[in-house]
Design a protein around this nucleic acid. Structure first.
Length: 462
DNA sequence: TGAAATGTTGGGGCG
DNA sequence: ACGCCCCAACATTTC
């Protein structure tokens, strides 16, 4: 009788296809899959509400996928993951633990603690690297430093061999008797707020939903470079939450895109590489989750206006493109990337509210909230990160709207009060009279706000 | 993965 | 025919 081995799911790896830890575990013994909800391990960046909504459903989907091959997903609460693993080792007599490495600083500490505890027990610990295209730490400049500029990082990534082909679902030997499991409800992940009703309409969490989305997007890949900046179309893949939860591996995405579009997949693979860049940066500079990479920004004279922050969060700034984005976020847990840049720029430059507040809001409301990419994106916009937009590049929320949402279809979709306006007027509603005034006046004068932000930036420059 | 200010050019209206 | 002005279109500089 072969020994039991634990397959430790950690929430960024919720799939059975192309699952290296599963495949390795299956070769070694009877597979015991477990997800441990360990709040004490999570620190200040525990998954936000939208991510918990997704996680709850993705775990249900994973349990089904595992069930189809004869495995059962064990769910457990534990103070620390290491406690949960030790308990399960006792109960099952398992001889090894397989899992996938994460890139977050807190997760690295957990991995170290688990490695230590398992070594003490003489239990094998197999930490597999599969959440990025290139292994964390493997991407180095000629001087041996981490890349801090995207383009050289990208070129270097593309010079590597193509990622290996995705693995099929392995043949598995199930356990003969299964340890007890909590129910998904007992984990208490689902936020059960009223607002989550919109999320279910927009998404299908789980591996099947992910593969379906990849399949569908493959048909549009040829138009990606034309359409990707247009929030009024479905030009982007919308794979980000699936990748975040590992319902799809980056190399599955890579090969899926190659099969669908061959060399034409390049512009989209470049975006997939941005995802890798974020994870490599977070791994190299873990403190950047709440501190600017470029240290002079610590002295920036940020505004503490809580009221303004609320107005931005609600999507009531009076700038239609910004408000449409913030409302799309609230209703669907997702925002088009072009609009993320504009909305983020508005918070940081027009309102001069520090990027950490924006990052926290996105963290709580995005279904694809990923610490590495959220940090990269906000520091990019704020101008304080790696390969950041220079601070003096201030987006104009009106002209950006006119450029990328020329008929204002996106704005009118998400801001009902503007629906009666023509495409031309919807981006500048203050020029026309709105019956009932259901849409707010602009909360700032953009031209003045821009000048104020540039002046503040001048203060901190060396 | 900007935008605004400033500079330059060239066509056309006009006296 | 000529110079002058206006201004759109484009280029360059600056933040």
């Amino acid at each position: 009788m072969s020994p039991a081995v634990i397959l430790w799911y950690r929430g960024h790896d919720l799939r059975v296809n192309d699952n290296e830890a599963l495949s390795a575990a299956a070769q070694r013994g009877r597979v015991l899959p477990v997800y441990l909800h360990a709040p004490a391990d999570e620190g200040p960046w525990a998954p936000g509400a939208a991510a918990r909504w997704w996680l709850h459903r993705s775990l249900q989907a994973l349990a089904e996928q595992l069930g189809a091959v004869g495995l059962r997903l064990i769910l457990r609460r534990a103070e620390h993951a290491v406690d949960g693993l030790l308990t399960l080792l006792e109960e099952s007599g398992a001889t090894a633990v397989y899992t996938h490495r994460r890139s977050e600083p807190e997760a690295a500490a957990v991995e170290a603690a688990v490695a230590q505890a398992l070594a003490n027990k003489g239990v094998g610990f197999h930490l597999v690297q599969a959440h990025t295209l290139a292994p964390l730490g493997a991407m180095r400049t000629l001087e041996g430093n981490p890349y801090r500029v995207f383009t050289p990082f990208y070129r270097s990534l593309m010079r590597r061999d193509e990622p290996a082909e995705p693995l099929p679902v392995p043949d598995v030997q199930p356990m003969t008797t299964w340890p007890a499991s909590d129910t998904i409800e007992q984990l208490g992940l689902d936020p059960q707020h009223e607002w989550t009703s919109g999320l279910a309409h927009a998404w299908t969490p789980g591996e099947r939903g992910a593969l379906q989305r990849l399949q569908t997007f493959g048909q549009y890949l040829g138009d990606y470079s034309q359409q990707r900046d247009r929030p009024d179309t479905d030009g982007t893949s919308c794979l980000s939450p699936h990748l975040r939860f590992g319902e799809l591996s980056p190399r599955q995405a890579w090969h899926g895109a190659r099969i669908a579009a061959g060399l034409q997949a390049e512009p989209w693979l470049r975006q997939l590489a941005w995802r890798d860049f974020g994870h490599h940066l977070l791994h190299a500079y873990p403190h950047t989750v709440d501190r600017p990479l470029r240290e002079m920004f610590a002295a920036f004279p940020w505004s503490q206006d809580q009221r303004a922050l609320r107005i931005w969060q609600k999507g009531a700034t009076g700038f239609p493109f910004v408000d449409a984005g913030m409302r799309q976020l609230w209703h669907t847990g997702w925002m088009h990337n072009r609009v993320r840049m504009i909305a983020a720029s508005f918070l940081v430059k027009d309102l001069m509210i520090c990027w950490q507040h924006g990052a926290r809001w996105f963290w709580d409301t995005l279904v694809d909230a990923d610490l590495a990419n959220n940090t990269l994106g906000w520091q990019w916009v704020a101008g304080c990160g790696a390969d950041a937009a220079p601070y003096f590049r201030v987006f104009n929320p009106v002209t950006q709207g006119e450029k990328f949402d020329p008929n204002a279809d996106y704005v009118r979709r998400w801001v009902p009060a503007l629906r009666q306006l023509t495409g031309r007027d919807a981006h500048r509603p203050w020029r026309v009279s709105l019956p009932g005034r259901r849409y707010p006046e602009p909360m700032v004068d953009h031209a003045e706000a821009r000048i104020a932000a540039l002046a503040a930036y001048k203060e901190i420059r060396p």
